[in-house]
Design a protein around this nucleic acid. Structure first.
Length: 426
RNA sequence: GGAGAGGUGGCUGAGUGGUCGAAAGCACCGCACUCGAAAUGCGGCGUACCUGCAAGGGUACCGUGGGUUCGAAUCCCACCCUCUCCGCCA
């Protein structure tokens, strides 16, 4: 959500920032509605003040038993009443239009975000590790099915496209990865582990920005709740409507949860394999900070995500997303992309965003210093640390050998009961 | 799912149609007293928005949204949430 007062003060800056995201100028329509809202609000409030004054007089007349005077005043208030009602109705109507526009407009990019129309404008920040040398690498589907531990056909029968059954060591590998990541983030990076609700209400999904614009990307239950597309929704909304003491910040929260996405706009993309599923596990990182802390926290969080890939010895690169490729709520985003040997390319495995006060305004989540007057909106950040499904794919592909066996990354072996390989014994 | 109770300011808790944005207590802030502190006394102490150069003025908010009324924390309707008991259940 946007600060209408800041927009009023410098509409050109807003239009310029939205232009970087490919949007036409928004401020003329917004300012016109805003002016209409305020003029009718002022009118109705002034009329209401007159009405309240007369109502008080009626009270006094009734008290001293002057029925005639009371009746006279009641008649006098009639016309004011209808005036109040019509002005108020019109103000509310314009306000609703204004809110609808503001709620659907994306966050403004931070100043240091590179300009660009799409992913080609993203800028590589750093690169870690080197691609393993594998002759004729198989993709994770061939590997998983070859091991007899990955079954897309059975999943299609039970659930349709974009689902999978993992079995045996692969099911365990998924569980191991989740636990491994969670342990790193909680024990080494100071995040508090949370087990959050997977179903949330409209307010929560509005707060993080998936509603009202992106409802078609989500699954909805018959009683009107939403399956979370990421634990970001549950975790960030823990502060919905709250006022926190700044001394408590930053809040660092992490959760391992399933994520549910309809992938409505992605038909035909990544149809093969586990890259793009309706359901996947992810370890999410969320930080709630003061306005001063969020920039440093963003770098820190990105490092927390990178640490997992380093520990697993998976080659990756860190990209700074350009203005045209960022998500709705983000001011600045780093994507982590892991090397996928079968595709000979890097694929997104984590996305770390600083949302500034954008989500906090939508959630009405504020902070204050104890003893001081006034509140400020918090800053919120979220990042994957990491997407478990895609990490599993990356492990399979990067750790395969010619025979289709998978060696287990050293750091992960304790989580696999000491197992060193999946596949034929050696 | 059935029956009942209830949601008031940072907290406890009064208030069932008129000067209630809301008693009182606690907490907090300032001042006085004190060498200092405690205790005590006095004063202050919500949020958002509109308007105004400012001082100030105004509107709204007692779970949420509607309604009745000249006037609603108080009456009516719907919804949300919490608690108790019964049933069912991982």
């Amino acid at each position: 959500m946007h600060d209408i007062r800041a927009l009023r003060a410098d509409p050109a800056a807003y239009d310029a920032a939205w232009a970087l995201r490919g949007l036409p100028a928004q401020s003329p329509a917004i300012l016109e509605l805003d002016a209409a809202v305020r003029s009718f609000q002022t009118k109705s409030q002034e009329a209401k003040a007159r009405q309240n004054a007369i109502s008080a007089e009626i009270g006094q007349a009734m008290r001293r038993g002057d029925q005639a005077e009371a009746q006279r005043l009641k008649a006098a208030v009639e016309s004011i009443k209808s005036e109040v009602a019509s002005d108020e109705e019109w103000a509310n109507l314009q306000k609703a239009k204004l809110d609808a526009i503001l709620a659907a407009l994306p966050n403004l990019p931070a100043r240091d975000v590179p300009h660009g129309a799409d992913e080609h404008g993203n800028v590589e920040q750093r690169r870690w590790g080197s691609a393993p040398i594998i002759t004729a690498p198989k993709d994770h589907v061939a590997l998983g099915e070859g091991l007899g531990l990955m079954d897309f056909e059975a999943a299609a029968r039970t659930s349709g496209a974009r689902f999978v059954f993992l079995k045996g060591e692969l099911a365990r590998l998924e569980r191991a990865l989740g636990a491994f990541m969670l342990d790193i983030q909680t024990r080494e990076h100071g995040y508090t582990e949370v087990s959050p609700p997977l179903l949330v209400r409209d307010e929560a999904v509005f707060g993080t920005g998936q509603l009202p614009k992106f409802s078609e990307d989500l699954f909805r239950t018959t009683d009107g709740k939403w399956l979370i597309p990421t634990a970001e929704v549950s975790l960030t909304n823990m502060v919905l409507g709250q006022i926190l003491d700044e001394a408590e910040l930053p809040l660092r929260l992490t959760a391992l949860t399933p994520c549910f996405r309809s992938e409505a706009g992605a038909s035909g993309r990544d149809t093969r394999g586990m890259i793009r599923q309706h359901q996947f596990y992810k370890v999410e990182l969320v930080s709630i900070t003061t306005p001063e802390q969020s920039q440093d926290e963003h770098e820190r969080m990105t490092g927390c995500a990178e640490a997992v890939l380093k520990r697993l010895e998976l080659p990756f690169r860190t990209m700074l997303l350009c203005t045209g490729d960022m998500g709705f709520g983000a001011r600045k985003t780093y994507d982590l992309e892991v090397w996928m040997p079968s595709q000979e390319t890097y694929r997104e495995i984590s996305s770390c965003s600083n949302c500034g006060d954008f989500q906090a305004r939508r959630m009405d989540a504020r902070c204050k210093t104890a003893g001081e007057k006034g509140t400020r909106f918090m800053h919120t950040l979220n990042g994957s640390g990491l997407a478990v499904g895609r990490t599993l794919v990356a492990v399979l592909e990067n750790y395969q050998d010619e025979g289709g066996r998978i060696s287990i990354p050293t750091a992960l072996q304790p989580y696999m009961g000491g197992l060193t390989h999946i596949g034929a014994a050696s």
